[in-house]
Deep mutational scan, measured.
Amino acid sequence: MTFKLIINGKTLKGETTTEAVDAATAEKVLKQYANDNGIDGEWTYDDATKTFTVTE
C-alpha cells in the first residue's frame, strides 16, 4: 500500500510517499524521514486517504 506524508513545516513544506504493509510501518518510516529532515510537530492520520500530516 502507498502512504502519503504531507509536511507543513516552518522551513520545509511538501509531500512524500512510502510503500508499506500497514499504517504502523508507514508511520515509523515517515516519522524517521521527518526526523532526519528536522521536522517536529503534531501528527495526524486519515485512514480513508492513507495520508499522514505533520504540522510544525
Rank of each mutant, 00 (worst) to 15 (best):
K10F: 13
Q32A: 13
M1R: 08
A48T: 11
I7D: 01
M1F: 15
A24Y: 09
G38E: 06
I6V: 13
T16Q: 09
I6A: 04
A26R: 00
T2R: 13
L5G: 02
G9F: 13
A24E: 13
Y45H: 01
N37D: 03
G38Q: 07
A23T: 08
E56M: 11
E15H: 11
D22V: 03
M1E: 11
G14L: 15
K28P: 04
T16G: 04
E15A: 09
I39W: 08
K13M: 10
A20I: 03
F52W: 08
Y33S: 02
K31G: 04
F3M: 02
T55H: 06
T51S: 05
D36H: 08
D46G: 02
L12E: 07
L5H: 00
T17I: 08
E42R: 07
F52H: 01
D47C: 06
D46V: 05
T49I: 07
T25C: 08
E56H: 06
T44W: 08
V21T: 13
K13C: 12
Y33Q: 03
K4L: 09
A20L: 03
L30M: 05
N35E: 14
W43N: 00
N35R: 15
G14Y: 15
T17N: 06
V54N: 01
A20M: 03
T49D: 04
D47W: 08
K28C: 08
L5F: 04
E27D: 04
L12T: 12
G41Y: 02
E19C: 12
A34L: 06
I39R: 01
T16I: 15
M1Q: 13
T55C: 06
A24T: 09
K31Y: 06
A23N: 05
L5N: 01
A34V: 06
E19L: 14
E42S: 10
A20Y: 02
T55Y: 08
A48N: 12
G38K: 07
G14P: 07
T11L: 10
V54L: 10
T18K: 04
T25L: 08
Y33V: 05
T49G: 05
E42D: 11
F3P: 01
V21E: 11
L12I: 14
E19P: 05
K10T: 11
M1G: 11
D40F: 14
T55V: 09
T49F: 05
K28V: 11
T51Y: 03
K4E: 04
T25A: 13
T2P: 05
V29M: 12
I7N: 02
N35D: 13
D40K: 14
K28H: 09
K28S: 09
K28Q: 13
T25N: 06
T2Q: 11
I6G: 02
E27L: 15
G41V: 02
E42W: 12
N37G: 05
T2E: 11
N35S: 14
G14W: 15
D40E: 13
T51D: 01
A23C: 11
L5I: 04
Y33T: 03
A20R: 03
A48C: 07
K13D: 06
Y45K: 01
A48P: 06
K10A: 12
T51L: 04
E42I: 15
V29H: 08
N37A: 13
D22S: 06
D36C: 07
L12A: 09
I39L: 07
K13H: 11
N8H: 10
F52R: 00
Q32F: 05
D46W: 04
A48E: 13
G14N: 08
Y45D: 00
G14S: 13
T55Q: 06
T53A: 05
D40S: 14
N37M: 15
K13F: 10
T17F: 14
K13P: 05
L30V: 03
T55L: 05
T2I: 15
A48D: 12
G14I: 15
A26V: 02
N8A: 09
A26F: 01
D47S: 12
I39T: 03
L12D: 07
F3Y: 14
A20Q: 10
W43D: 00
A20K: 03
L5R: 00
T51F: 02
A26S: 02
A23E: 07
G9P: 03
W43K: 00
Y45Q: 01
K10C: 14
V29F: 15
F52T: 00
E19F: 15
K10G: 08
T51H: 03
G38L: 06
K10L: 15
D22C: 05
F52I: 01
D47R: 07
L5Y: 02
K31R: 15
T51K: 03
V21P: 15
L30T: 01
T44V: 09
D36M: 11
I6N: 05
T49S: 09
Y45E: 00
T53Y: 10
F3K: 01
D47E: 14
V29C: 07
N8W: 11
V29G: 04
E27N: 05
T55N: 08
L30P: 00
K13Y: 11
D36G: 06
K31P: 00
M1A: 12
L30Y: 04
A26D: 00
K10M: 12
E15D: 06
T16K: 12
G41W: 07
V21F: 14
E15F: 14
T55I: 08
Y33W: 15
I7Y: 12
T25F: 09
K28L: 11
A26C: 02
K4F: 14
T16N: 05
G9V: 13
A20S: 07
A20P: 02
A48R: 10
E19H: 13
D40I: 14
Q32S: 08
T49R: 06
T18A: 11
N8C: 13
T25P: 01
T17S: 15
T25G: 07
K13T: 10
L5T: 01
D47K: 08
E19T: 14
E56T: 09
I7G: 02
D22K: 03
A24M: 10
M1V: 14
K4R: 14
E15C: 14
I6Q: 05
Y33R: 04
K28T: 10
T18D: 02
Y45R: 01
I39F: 07
T2K: 12
G9I: 13
